[in-house]
Write a protein that binds this DNA or RNA. Structure first.
Length: 198
DNA sequence: TATACGATCACCT
DNA sequence: GGTGATCGTATAC
């Protein structure tokens, strides 16, 4: 499986946020490999985006967003959860994609009622459903130790391109979550998800 | 140094 | 629908 390249991460953030859907987020932890299919993302773009952490400029925390694309931006939220972002666009332009949700496609997972083998992975039931950035990071053992991690090598944390043979459902665009403070920016349709969820 | 609050989640009514 | 947990960060003092 091919690892997403620096070149991929240097593209337009909205495009990346959509193209990450269906890709595999891979975590290597204590010698084990965990893979999750990305099903939900949000774009945070530039200092003019009032929802973006970089809207208040360069700080020690947001420095990574200004750096080379293809690195991880991991921060703690509400004192108890972590959120994983991938840094996008060119160096010195602060932007990132928040990974908000995924599906654990492990074949060991029991199928939910009404599901058959071969059931589309992103329509699987709750057993493998990692809906929410906090839950996703908790499952994949992602915390601030992985902040600034380079995602373009096959160590600890990376993303692999999606299987082109698998047809993805329509991408749903909606408002971003939990950013009521962001004034007009909260109206932007910068949240992207596969159609089994809203 | 002090304080306010958040790119969340689980549990409650 | 609402609320509490819990702490890093930004900002005010």
């Amino acid at each position: 499986m091919k690892i997403l390249s620096r070149r991929f991460y240097s593209q337009n953030t909205i495009k990346i946020a959509q193209e990450l859907l269906g890709c595999f987020l891979v975590r290597e932890y204590r010698g084990k490999i965990m893979k999750v299919i990305i099903t939900e993302t949000e774009a945070y773009i530039g200092e003019n985006d009032l929802a973006c952490h970089a809207s208040r400029g360069r700080t020690p925390r947001t420095e990574v967003m200004y750096g080379v694309p293809g690195h991880a931006y991991v921060y703690m939220i509400y004192g108890m959860y972590h959120c994983l972002n991938v840094v996008t666009e060119e160096k010195d332009f602060p932007a990132a994609v928040l990974i908000r949700g995924g599906i654990n496609p492990s074949p060991a997972l029991p199928l939910a009622k009404g599901e058959s083998p071969g059931f589309p992975l992103w329509q699987r039931g709750t057993k493998g459903d990692l809906n929410g950035p906090g839950k996703l990071c908790r499952f994949l053992k992602i915390d601030r130790k992985l902040n600034t991690w380079d995602l373009t090598k096959s160590e600890k944390l990376w993303i692999e391109e999606r299987d082109s043979k698998i047809k993805l459902p329509k991408v749903i665009k909606s408002r971003r979550i939990g950013i009521d403070y962001a004034k007009h920016c909260k109206e932007y349709l910068w949240r992207y998800s596969l159609s089994s969820r809203t």
